[in-house]
């Protein structure tokens, strides 16, 4: 190799390397790279109880580092003999959206960018049931407004969930108690489930979620309300960290009109069993064959 060709080759190589380095410069902004353990973690169902214990401790550490508060993260299991069902009384709902805010607070949803699981659609009393003529961004001084009714929509926890079918890596599945959950550590963020859901129930973390320290709910579950990661899906999970302990979901508890009912459909004496037997009940988009566990009903 002559001196000149050596100089030329090394100039070309150096320029190329500098250009690539400049191109990749924005990567320096990443504050926290995922640890080796996080990168290699197995899918939820493949974790042994011992491995799960290690994972939960690691996640507690992660949350503490990011949000400055030590949470208690548990892996809540479904209770046997329980199948959850939700019923929502359209005659009573006034569209106050207290459920939306209670859900955000309970489930550590990102405040910026904002993520909410419940969408309340304001529909005109005009003889139709056309969701397209609805409004989700209504801001009146007080509710309810005359001439309108309100239809809250959240995950319908379908018996035949299209989102679970389409997931290419089985990062989302239906649990024994009927709740469809997501392993936030297994999701690759392709958003195919979001395209498949007929109820607009799934949300994607377009950025790293941010929650003020004082608003963190430290009682967390692995498949439920622990803070999510950037680039993964999340959705309503019927407040797994409450309902699997026999408590009501936050949205049911907060509803001032009692429009929201929740319970075990396998128990013939439960409130939801009574509603399904005695009220005029319907499900949204029945023709799609998704068999929701979320029912709407009217008082009369």
């Amino acid at each position: 190799m002559t001196r000149r060709s050596f100089l030329r080759t090394s100039t070309v190589l150096a320029t190329g390397a500098a250009a690539i380095a400049a191109g990749l410069a924005p990567l320096r902004k990443i504050g926290h790279y995922s640890s080796v353990e996080e990168f290699l973690q197995k899918q939820y169902k493949e974790l042994s109880p011992a491995e799960m214990k290690v994972v939960l401790t690691r996640i507690e550490g992660e949350v503490e580092r990011q949000y400055g508060i030590r949470p208690h993260v548990r892996d809540y299991k479904p209770m046997s003999g329980v199948q959850f069902v939700y019923a929502l009384n359209l005659s009573r709902c006034v569209g106050c959206r207290k459920c939306v805010h209670a859900c955000v607070a309970e489930n550590n949803q990102s405040r910026n960018p904002e993520i909410q699981y419940i969408r309340v659609v304001k529909l005109p009393n005009d003889g139709s049931f056309d969701l397209e003529s609805g409004d989700v961004n209504y801001t009146p001084k007080s509710v309810p407004e005359a001439g309108f009714f309100y239809m809250p929509i959240q995950c319908h926890q379908c018996h035949n969930p299209p989102c679970v079918t389409v997931c290419p890596v089985k990062a989302t599945w239906q649990e024994a108690d009927g709740i469809t959950v997501i392993d936030y550590n297994w999701c690759i963020g392709c958003r195919y489930c979001e395209a498949a859901c007929p109820y607009f129930a799934r949300r994607f973390n377009f950025a790293t979620p941010s929650i003020p320290k004082e608003q963190i709910n430290p009682k967390m579950s692995y498949l439920g309300n622990r803070p999510r990661y950037k680039g993964v899906m999340e959705k309503c999970h019927f407040c797994i960290q409450r309902t699997r302990e026999g408590r009501y979901p936050a949205c049911v508890e907060v509803c001032p009109t009692g429009s929201r009912k929740f319970g075990n459909i396998l128990d013939p004496d439960s409130e939801v069993s009574y509603i399904l037997k005695n009220k005029r009940v319907f499900v949204l988009k029945e023709e799609l064959g998704t068999h929701p566990r979320f029912f709407y009903y009217f008082d009369i």
Partner: peptide
């Protein structure tokens, strides 16, 4: 290289750098 630089930004910040949303997710 311009594309690589743009992707590095997206990788660091997230898909919020795109015009996509929960409504139009692709």
């Amino acid at each position: 290289l311009l594309g690589l630089n743009a992707y590095a930004k997206q990788f660091a910040v997230g898909l919020i750098t795109t015009g996509m949303s929960d409504q139009v997710s692709w």
